[in-house]
């Protein structure tokens, strides 16, 4: 791997200088970020959902440690995106296991035909009940008439 600063330099972070006075600093209106805050920002920006704000850029320009961390996040993101194309060991029986599972739980008959069948049964039952009621009424009328 090239392009990384030597380890001796990496191991020496450049923390934000401690304020020596409570008075406001007219020459640097932005409070400086510390390495820990920038580290959080690096995890956020690694995927490219947002870019760095000016404060973060200023810190990165002045801090080798954080630039190294940024480099490692880039490396991590590239490795993650390559994983998708990496095959994993797959049981050769998996395909047939899925198909058997579908046969058992997901046939068209089970999910599509069943409601239609139930509707037919219900309609048949209703028709039979209607016929019985009609016959009974007809018999009662016949009885009254006689």
């Amino acid at each position: 791997m090239t392009g990384e600063p030597p380890a001796a330099v990496i191991a020496t972070p450049s923390p934000a200088p401690a304020p020596t006075t409570a008075a406001p600093q007219p020459t640097s209106p932005m409070p400086r970020l510390d390495c820990a805050s920038l580290s959080e920002a690096l995890a956020e920006t690694a995927g490219g959902d947002r870019g760095h704000d000016p404060q973060e850029v200023a810190h990165l320009e002045s801090c080798l440690r954080c630039r190294v961390e940024q480099f490692r996040y880039r490396h991590l993101m590239q490795a993650l995106s390559r994983l998708r194309d990496t095959p994993v060991p797959t049981d050769p029986r998996l395909e047939s296991q899925i198909l058997v599972y579908l046969d058992r739980h997901g046939t068209r008959w089970a999910w599509d035909a069943r409601p239609r069948l139930a509707a037919k049964v219900a309609a048949g039952a209703a028709a039979a009940a209607g016929l019985i009621a009609f016959t009974a009424r007809h018999r009662r009328i016949a009885k009254l008439a006689s």
């Binding site: 990496i10 995890a43 959902d49």
Partner: peptide, 21 residues
Amino acid sequence: AKVRLHRARRRLREQVLPMPG
């Protein structure tokens, strides 16, 4: 989801590509 993602990236970076020390 975003908070979890950033935490996950950080853990992976620490595990796989740790900074010295």
